[in-house]
Computed example of a mutant assay.
Amino acid sequence: MNQVVKKRVAILISGRGSNMQALVAAAREPDYPAEIALVISNRPEAPGLAWAREQGLPTVALDHKRYESRPHFEGQLQSLLELSRIDLIALAGFMRLMTPDFVARWYGRMINIHPSLLPAFKGLDTHRQALSAGVRISGCTVHFVSAEMDAGPIIAQAAVPILCSDKEQDLAARVLTAEHKLYPAALALVANDQASLRETTVVWQSFGAAGINHPEALFSPSL
């Protein structure tokens, strides 16, 4: 039997990395098509970096404040990714905008998760934006990273209800639960080439998605 070659993934974080933890947990399953080969944080004090070290994962603290420019920082980042033979990048709360040159180099191989149903409520304070707008459904989106913030081609989404009693923290918690299911599923779709990027369009292979069995959220593709 031929052994499946797993895609090598680098996770980039800036904080506690709860989505990173969900990806790491998923990658521990024998049939998951990706392995977490590197965790990088631009903030050396990030709690998620300490957690990753405790899990025995290769980690690097790449303090962006030590670099004179974004291209200088990204040059060092690129060197680390090449040394670790990285195939895919997963951004998990990485609070740095990438330059167009870096995005172009990794276009179709770098994904991000955003806590809204894009293209609605881009940027920060997404839950406040959703509550202020009075929408009744929110959620999260995994997308390929493009040069424009929160605007890349969409891979997968999960929708969750907004309740009349919701405060920001209530909605954030409900969306985060969906994120932790959606992100590992979306990364798997990319890692096994079931979802790939052709110019600005996500191209799908048949993946036999199961029915929707999560009453608290609607996932697309279904999980």
Score class of each variant (00 low, 15 high):
residue 1 M to K: 14
residue 3 Q to W: 04
residue 9 V to A: 00
residue 14 S to L: 05
residue 16 R to D: 04
residue 17 G to K: 00
residue 17 G to M: 02
residue 18 S to W: 03
residue 19 N to H: 09
residue 22 A to Y: 09
residue 24 V to L: 06
residue 26 A to S: 10
residue 29 E to F: 01
residue 32 Y to I: 03
residue 33 P to D: 08
residue 33 P to W: 11
residue 35 E to T: 14
residue 38 L to K: 00
residue 40 I to Q: 01
residue 42 N to M: 00
residue 44 P to Q: 10
residue 46 A to P: 07
residue 47 P to A: 07
residue 49 L to V: 08
residue 50 A to V: 10
residue 55 Q to V: 04
residue 57 L to P: 05
residue 58 P to N: 11
residue 59 T to N: 04
residue 63 D to G: 15
residue 75 G to E: 10
residue 75 G to P: 04
residue 76 Q to S: 10
residue 77 L to M: 11
residue 81 L to H: 03
residue 83 L to D: 15
residue 84 S to G: 02
residue 84 S to H: 15
residue 87 D to F: 02
residue 88 L to W: 05
residue 91 L to Q: 05
residue 95 M to N: 09
residue 97 L to V: 09
residue 98 M to I: 04
residue 104 A to L: 06
residue 104 A to C: 13
residue 107 Y to N: 11
residue 108 G to V: 11
residue 108 G to D: 14
residue 109 R to T: 07
residue 110 M to H: 05
residue 113 I to Y: 09
residue 122 K to I: 07
residue 125 D to Q: 14
residue 129 Q to K: 12
residue 132 S to H: 07
residue 138 S to C: 04
residue 139 G to Y: 01
residue 142 V to H: 02
residue 143 H to R: 01
residue 144 F to L: 07
residue 148 E to I: 05
residue 150 D to E: 15
residue 150 D to S: 07
residue 153 P to F: 11
residue 154 I to F: 07
residue 156 A to V: 02
residue 159 A to V: 03
residue 160 V to P: 12
residue 168 E to N: 11
residue 173 A to F: 11
residue 174 R to T: 09
residue 175 V to P: 08
residue 175 V to S: 10
residue 176 L to S: 09
residue 178 A to G: 15
residue 187 L to M: 12
residue 187 L to D: 00
residue 189 L to T: 08
residue 191 A to V: 13
residue 192 N to D: 15
residue 193 D to E: 15
residue 196 S to I: 11
residue 196 S to W: 14
residue 198 R to E: 13
residue 201 T to Q: 15
residue 202 V to I: 09
residue 202 V to A: 13
residue 206 S to L: 12
residue 207 F to K: 00
residue 210 A to D: 08
residue 211 G to V: 15
residue 213 N to R: 11
residue 216 E to W: 15
residue 218 L to D: 02
residue 221 P to K: 03
residue 222 S to R: 13
